[in-house]
Amino acid sequence: MARFIVRRTIFLLATLFAVSVLAFVMPYFGEGDPARMILRARMGGELALDPAVVEAVRRQFGLDQPIPIQYLRWLEAAVTGDFGQSFTNRQPVGGIVLRALGVSFLLALAALVLATIIAVPLGILAALRSGGRRDSVIVTLTQGLVALPEYWLAPLGMLVFALWLGWLPAAGWTSPISVILPASVLCLRPLAYLLGVTRASMITVLESPYITAARSRGLSQFLTLRRHGLKNAMVPVMTLFSIWLAGTLGGSVVIEVIFNIPGLGRVMYEAVVNADMPVVQAGVLATVGLAIVINTLTDIGYAALNPAILVGESNG
């Protein structure tokens, strides 16, 4: 197990390095001269730029150096947590991205945990009598959820729970209860997928010989499910959970904009619009980096759930 974790961690660092190169170089493929982009961002518009000023900015930011040198300098600073200053407001980028990432991670985690808490028990209930009436009600309802677009659900949620009932704040990110409404809207689609996978996985597991064998040892259906069904059925559910968590991190732009949440999706969206390169670079690195970390943790989780997974590892 320890060797498995070490291998995964080395792989993780290598991937992070590759991502950092891409994150750094990417903005250079877009607009033209970075020095002009900086000035444009600061002045907030297309002005006739003094070539001398452009030259000074270029030298000040080290943009006159070759790109590999610039990358190494950026990386050197980045490992100490310094991602430079935002072009638009001169704030340290590290702080901006970290704060936004924290908000997005919290929102995504809340949504996914909520989805899992609802989806897994319902999926198991559906699987226990698959083909029955309870099963078809659950499946039909959740398939409906997948079809509902967030930009329609979010305003509806605000209308009902904030304006009519007044239970929850309509928007913003001020108190812990601010997370409830956006997380509830965000959880519906992953909920539908998680439920489907839990149900399918549980149906397969329940037909496994080891379940019949456990029953033959005198374990009740409930005990069999708890001791032998859950762990085996949870492997694909975990995969889906981590995919959705990573995807929701950078992908909840619509929700963050509608609910006015200062998350990474919104920060990145604004940075791209304003050509704020350091923020884009750090943001991409943070989103992808966290996704890779989540993936690695999931892999380690698999091995903890099912030791047979380690078999191929030690030989390979």
Partner: peptide
Amino acid sequence: DREMDRVRGSRIAMLFQQPKATLDPTS
């Protein structure tokens, strides 16, 4: 069902064809 749960294991036990598949891989 509960009475039958007490019969299995204590009064009637079973062996199956695929011994490795009848053991839970995670336990």
